[in-house]
């Protein structure tokens, strides 16, 4: 239905946990779905040389990032038999313990949904121009790099 319409991915600040529950609720009328797969990225309190990360401040090359998100969606729909897919990523400050990435795919069967979610997460980490400033408790920082 709305399978390939470009959607806005970025949200300002942390992704509220209620958004996940609402997304699930919004799919209960789609009875061809037999499986949802959800990935949630949460800010971890990493320790670096005795200092603890308290938040990540995300920035992005937004125009390019939205286009890359769209390309990843197109590739995912071409590759996997999924009913729908939703991605949300934070911009701005997200504190430890809060959510910064929400990937939600649905399919008739579990394997496809799980594989599609994994594809989205790996592609997002590798290809989307998002940058993360890890802020320590003393307000110093370092720049995050995806492994």
């Amino acid at each position: 239905m709305d399978k390939k319409k470009p959607k806005k991915v970025f949200v300002q600040g942390a992704i509220p946990p209620e958004k996940i529950a609402n997304s699930v609720a919004n799919h209960q009328s789609k009875t061809e779905i037999g499986a949802h797969s959800i990935f949630l990225g949460q800010i971890r309190a990493d320790e670096v040389e005795g200092k603890t990360v308290t938040a990540i401040d995300y920035t992005a090359y937004e125009e390019m990032a939205e286009n890359v998100f769209h390309e990843i969606r197109e590739a995912a729909f071409a590759k996997f038999d999924i009913t729908c897919a939703h991605i949300y990523h934070s911009l701005g400050r997200v504190n430890v313990g809060e959510l910064c990435l929400f990937v939600f795919t649905s399919s008739a069967h579990r394997k496809i949904a799980i594989e599609a979610t994994n594809f989205f997460v790996e592609e997002i980490k590798a290809k989307v121009p998002v940058f993360g400033k890890e802020i320590f408790e003393d307000e110093t920082h370092q720049w995050k790099v995806n492994k």
Partner: peptide
Amino acid sequence: VALLPPFAGG
């Protein structure tokens, strides 16, 4: 033109 450091999404 954009100068992009390593990506850190997710």
